[in-house]
Design a protein around this nucleic acid. Structure first.
Lengths: 148, 148
DNA sequence: TTAATCCCTATCAATTTAGTAGAGTTACAC
DNA sequence: GTGTAACTCTACTAAATTGATAGGGATTAA
């Protein structure tokens, strides 16, 4: 299960993508539209900003904007920022690799190579699907970008 | 990430499968062989017993045995028992469906149908790989059963 | 009858999750 | 140049989950 926080992050990004007209969108607007607790959303957007997914404008008339085009933001990168590693085992993580302390020998680990397949399958979906795909479901995965 | 508990459960089952000669295997033996805390493993095997994966014999000369052949026990069913739903969203779970309270309309939910793909891909791997596959990695997924 | 083994429930410390709170900073509008 | 609407940052907290540990009870082989 992904966290509630990750769901909020993805929803917020789709909201930003849909309103993408060069004008910043206020946290309060996104919060209201997507039913996200405002103060919680503040933290989430701040994270996304620190990680280079969105930019903000402060003061009156401020708000948030996507930093990259919506078809360049994948579900995978958002999930990594918010929920951490995609991999089902630490020893399969690309961004946060850690040796399993209870298994000796990754070549021989009976569990590991099964979950390697799971990780591959999951990544294939998550990194080929973008925020743009999410707001235009009919067009199917990656089509937006491939036609561009 | 799957839990440590699930990893222990899968390892314990591979241990049982490898020793599958009709004689029960003691908790202590599995614990020692797989470096699993004994009392923790007790709980895990008890769960697996209640869910019809293994059987036990009590008293002296007791221990655990697989209830089904190793090539009939999938990673998916073990993970469900130990870690709960496979699906990344409650509204995508087969065994524990629950409506997401913050999204209205599953047909229109922009997040949901992306994670439906993730769930499908994950299930495809987890329910086509068995404990038998894990202990005979060279043979590849499902081959054991397909040649039987 | 004894000792080995599984059975079951309770408890616990650490971590994670899902928020809330509040003071600080910036910048537009007047 | 002041007010105020907006984002920024850090700290805190309650509840749930995780990864165990503890300890007595029930059963069975020898």
């Amino acid at each position: 299960m992904i966290t509630q926080k990750a769901k909020y992050a993805l929803r917020a990004l789709t909201a930003l993508a849909e309103a993408d007209d060069g004008e910043p969108v206020m946290i309060s607007d996104i919060a209201a539209q997507q039913k996200i607790p405002k103060k919680f959303l503040e933290q989430i957007l701040l994270d996304l900003k620190h990680q280079g997914i969105v930019v903000s404008r402060r003061g009156k008339q401020g708000g948030y904007l996507l930093l990259k085009p919506a078809d360049m933001i994948t579900f995978g990168e958002v999930l990594r920022i918010i929920d951490g590693p995609i991999a089902p085992l630490p020893c399969l993580s690309i961004t946060a690799y850690r040796k399993c302390d209870d298994c000796d020998g990754e070549q021989t680990c009976q569990i590991r190579h099964v979950f390697a397949k799971v990780a591959d399958a999951t990544r294939k979906v998550l990194f080929s699907t973008t925020i743009a795909d999410a707001i235009a479901p009919a067009r199917g995965t990656q089509v937006t970008r491939m036609l561009a």
